[in-house]
Design a binder for these strands. Structure first.
Length: 304
DNA sequence: ACGCCTACCTGCTTGC
DNA sequence: TGCAAGCAGGTAGGCG
């Protein structure tokens, strides 16, 4: 999907453009887009009339907070997009859900491959984590419905851009795992929001081989990885995301980050650091791009 | 815990 | 030109 930077871009766009807007009607044209077990018709009925309070992000999911406390979650997966269309914009054959806004605009959920999912949750669940009012929030949430949003994110790892995500915390997590670095970066329960593009970019920046065992990293290597992950994500956000075919912001325009990527989809092209060809291998069934010279198998001190 | 497989979907690119 | 195979930003579930 859109990874953390792309989802963050969409969420910021929506915060600017649709916070304060009212959804007058929802039209679902692909029922399975609505997260099980809620039937699409019930979703459409329950979202009608909702006022959008603010829009945020957790991991790779867009959170649309409604004024009544409920939360709509939009997981874009591979090809999902949330696009604000001005009144009169021609219909989109790939729009799976269309939200009519009271001012005539449409908020469109477009998804060519239909992997994305939209859920609607009772309020309370998100604030219960570390907010000091957990029990009360849970009771409110449970009285409103059987399913709580907390269930969606309970298995997720830390947000890499949060202040609380320190190099020490990463070191501690890495030290308890024997899996390959590439696999772990893609594991949403290990760290939230990193996907295939930014995993490869972070490993190149940190000069770490994708097949390296997590529990063999030196303190210096952990610090490099920590910095690299945060830098590639921040750069992605700064450039409004990486676009190849489907990803666009809420303005419908592609991001500028693809042209600034160092290794992703640059197989056989020269490494920007050493000039040798970038290689492609498969790790955990995912394409993995790296520079065999700059990212050697064994740990190697980097002078700086 | 880890790694591998299949499934979910459609469209684009590549090679014969 | 046609056609089949391979590829794609993600994740859930199952097996060993």
């Amino acid at each position: 999907m859109p990874e953390l930077p792309e989802v963050e871009t969409v969420a910021r766009d929506l915060q600017r453009w649709v916070a304060g807007a009212t959804i007058t009607r929802a039209t679902v044209t692909w029922d399975r887009t609505i997260r099980h077990p809620q039937p699409a018709e019930r979703f459409a009925a329950e979202i009608a009339g909702a006022l959008i309070h603010r829009v945020g992000r957790r991991a790779k999911t867009v959170l649309i907070h409604l004024a009544d406390g409920r939360i709509m979650t939009v997981a874009l997966r591979m090809t999902g997009a949330l696009i604000v269309a001005p009144a009169g914009t021609p219909p989109d054959p790939y729009a799976r859900v269309v939200f009519d806004l009271a001012d005539g605009r449409e908020l469109r959920y477009r998804d060519v491959r239909k992997f994305g999912r939209i859920g609607l949750w009772p309020g309370g669940g998100m604030r219960s984590v570390g907010a000091g009012r957990g029990a009360r929030s849970r009771r409110v949430a449970e009285s409103a419905g059987r399913y709580r949003i907390g269930e969606v994110f309970s298995g997720h790892g830390p947000e890499p851009l949060a202040r609380s995500f320190s190099a020490a915390r990463l070191a501690e997590r890495l030290s308890r795992r024997s899996a390959k670095l590439k696999t772990l970066l893609l594991d949403q329960s290990f760290i939230a929001g990193v996907g295939n593009i930014y995993a490869d970019e972070a490993l190149w920046r940190a000069r770490l081989h994708p097949l390296r065992r997590a529990d063999t990293l030196t303190p210096d290597e952990v610090r490099r990885l920590h910095r690299a992950v945060r830098q590639v994500l921040r750069q992605g956000i700064h450039n409004r995301g990486s676009s190849f075919s489907d990803y666009v912001g809420a303005d419908g325009l592609p991001g500028d980050n693809a042209e600034r990527l160092m290794v992703y989809r640059r197989t056989e092209q020269p490494c920007y650091r050493c000039g040798r060809p970038i290689r492609r291998i498969v790790v955990g069934q995912r394409s993995t791009h790296f520079c065999p010279h700059c990212q050697p198998e064994l740990s190697q001190p980097v002078e700086s």
